[in-house]
């Protein structure tokens, strides 16, 4: 038998292939997996909820920090002005 003929035969070896039957319990396995997936989906919802709450808390903290910083900056400004004025009053050189 020539090489070409054999290769052609190999290529045609799937010609009368029969459809294979499935495991009869496969559908039950699928239903079980769908149910389990739903449970997992609920828990992922909880994870997202807790994550968003965490992000919100960080955001609130940041706002508070920025506000406190602004207030302290204002206070610093007034004290520095006061110091300058007092310096001028006390230590100004007169000619």
């Amino acid at each position: 038998m020539s090489k070409e003929n054999t290769i052609e035969e190999i290529l045609e070896s799937t010609k009368d292939i029969k459809k294979v039957d499935l495991n009869p319990y496969l559908f039950n396995k699928i239903l079980l997996k769908i149910k389990l997936n739903k449970d997992i989906f609920l828990s992922t919802k909880l994870i997202w909820l807790s994550f968003s709450i965490y992000i919100l808390l960080i955001f609130c903290n940041l706002i508070i920090i920025i506000k406190i910083d602004k207030i302290s900056n204002k206070n610093e400004d007034t004290t520095s002005k006061y110091n300058l004025i007092s310096y001028n009053i006390n230590y100004q050189i007169y000619y």
Binding site: T14, K15, D16, I17, K18, V20
Partner: peptide
């Protein structure tokens, strides 16, 4: 492959 004919097993 379980669906292949016996005479084609080796080739498949």
């Amino acid at each position: 492959h379980p669906g292949i004919l016996l005479e084609n097993k080796e080739k498949s």
